[in-house]
Computed example of a mutant assay.
Amino acid sequence: MRIVVAGSHGLIGTALVSELRGRGDTVHRLVRGTPERPEDVAWDPDAGRLDPEALAGADAVVNLAGVNVGTRRLTEARKRAVILSRTRTTGLIATTLASLAVPPPVLLQASGIGAYGDRGDDVLDEDEPIGDTFFAGVVRQWEGATAPAEQAGVRVAHLRSGIVLARGGGALARIMPLVRAGVAGPLGSGRQYWSWITLTDEVRAILHLLDTPVAGPVNLVATAATNSEVTSALARAVHRPAVVPVPGWALRLGLGDFSQEILGSVRAVPRKLTESGFSHVHPDIDSAAAYVTATG
């Protein structure tokens, strides 16, 4: 296949491009600045610049672009950057696809499990409405920006990814050193549900959706677990205790608005993935913890 990927330098994008190339696909990365490889294409979402020929003839486009929401405090300026980095890139890709006489048939568009807001113990599949938190509002605008592509007949799947568990990076980068030191524990009450997926299964799910006729929101998650269960499983995998809690007030003080994503509860299920025939390599938190903490 010939695949165009935006957001190829992040955790998921890097792993996805490697997997695509490994299976023999041709990958064209949309990059800001000077392209590093002949098959890379320069674009400037802020200026609205993307050569339509970069997308013409592709079998699919995968858009993973967007600033990392967890690396800085969510000031008002940072919130604007979070929204614009998603809506500008997505809108530019969608309108460019719509401008082509024969657009690529598939757009896999990054999104997030924060779409549902803080829902406690409710079990959430893709039919649930979008919530009312800041990140739910981001998802509403983000997914809405794909409308031109959908209207042009492109199959658009919104990748509502959960917390991606990976070795040496991602959401666990700050947590694992504490786990290995034996000083980790529940965050807040620890009873809030975290919807997670391993990086291995995240990439496998994206590859699955390239070839499987699924459209609309798709929960890229495994079996949700409480924060306490996640921390305990990680600690067991490295033979350490997990008994030092972090109070909710401390997280709110240190993380500001982002703390709602840590303390909020999202119990999502991968209904569409399961119904379309996908099976997880890491279906439960114990197998995920073994994968994350494995060496070599």
Rank of each mutant, 00 (worst) to 15 (best):
M1R: 13
I3R: 03
V5E: 03
V5F: 07
G7L: 08
T14H: 13
G24A: 03
T26W: 11
R29S: 13
V31T: 14
P38W: 09
D40R: 09
A42S: 15
P52Y: 07
E53L: 14
L55N: 01
L64S: 04
G70Y: 09
K79S: 03
K79T: 05
V82I: 15
R86E: 05
T96A: 03
L97P: 00
V106M: 09
L108A: 04
A110G: 15
I113G: 01
I113A: 12
G117I: 00
G117Q: 00
R119P: 00
E126L: 08
E128P: 01
E128N: 11
E128C: 13
I130C: 12
F135R: 11
A136L: 00
G137A: 01
V139S: 00
E143H: 01
E143W: 01
T146S: 15
T146K: 02
T146W: 04
G153W: 08
G153R: 08
A157T: 12
L159E: 04
I163S: 10
G169V: 09
A173V: 14
R174M: 14
G182A: 08
L187I: 14
S189K: 04
Q192L: 11
I197W: 05
D201L: 09
D201C: 08
V203W: 05
H208Y: 04
D211N: 14
V214N: 05
A222H: 04
E229I: 11
A235L: 07
A237G: 01
V238C: 09
P241T: 05
P241R: 06
V246K: 04
V246S: 06
G248I: 04
W249N: 03
A250Q: 09
R252N: 02
Q260M: 13
P270E: 13
G277E: 11
V281Q: 14
S287T: 15
A288W: 01
A288F: 02
A290K: 11
V292H: 00
A294D: 12
G296N: 12
G296I: 09
